[in-house]
Design a protein around this nucleic acid. Sequence first.
DNA 1: CCGCATGTTTGCGG
DNA 2: CCCGCAAACATGCG
Length: 260
Amino acid sequence: MPELPEVAYQKIYVDSTSLHQKIVKVDLGAEKIFQSPKKDFKEVLMNNEFVSTSQIGKYLLLEMKEHGFLVIHFGMTGKMDYFQHDEIHKHAQLTLNFENGGKLSFICPRKFGKLFLTDSIEDFRKEKNLGPHASDLNKVEFLELFKRKKGSIKTALMDQSFIAGLGNLYVDEVLYHSGIHPKSKAEKLSEDELEKMYKNMVNVLETVTKSKTEGTSLPETFLRPHRTEGDDCPKCSGKIKMIKIGGRSTYFCPACQEEK
DNA sequence: CCGCATGTTTGCGG
DNA sequence: CCCGCAAACATGCG
């Protein structure tokens, strides 16, 4: 559930279910999820309520009426679940019972997710060393960032301190639509290529978020459903190839994304 | 059983 | 200091 578009979806989900509801019971799960003492989470959340939400990259920030923000990082498999029934999900790591009878759980099977408490969004951003939220960047800002970036373009786009929000799936997607080989050096990309990447980043994030919120499937020309070695490229007659970059499976079309 | 999976952090080597 | 890579974390799925 974890890159920028999925977190954007989780934000809408929380907004539409859980704002302005008084929390009357708090249940906590695995120790490792909690980045402050568990008793602090219980104390802060009890009798509190969420008043608004915001997002920086892959982090969802829930502003509380009192005591600052609850911050959620979803890891690879985290998601929120709002429900009315009695059974608690097997992998619920935090469950809030609201006064109106609704319940909100943070579900996280692999336990790679994290929960934080903070008083200030700006402090949190600095502490986590987060770059600008990807979908807030304008073209000029995007181009400016690349004046000081070296190394493979895939690694650069994955770097949360450079740009916050892109992950393995959508970095591949952006490079695919831009016709740029994932091993290309960031410092060697032309102005045209950078502009193309910016345009595609915006489009990929918007398109995926839209498909998430509207429950529709991705366009035929997207790489994502073809992340399999040897699959037909949805744009040309080539075959999809997989390589490892920074330990992550990287799918691309050697015909569309020529190595330079 | 094996390999792989949307993420982050840490440690090592060049 | 920068870059790249591997491993570790924990669980589910094909």
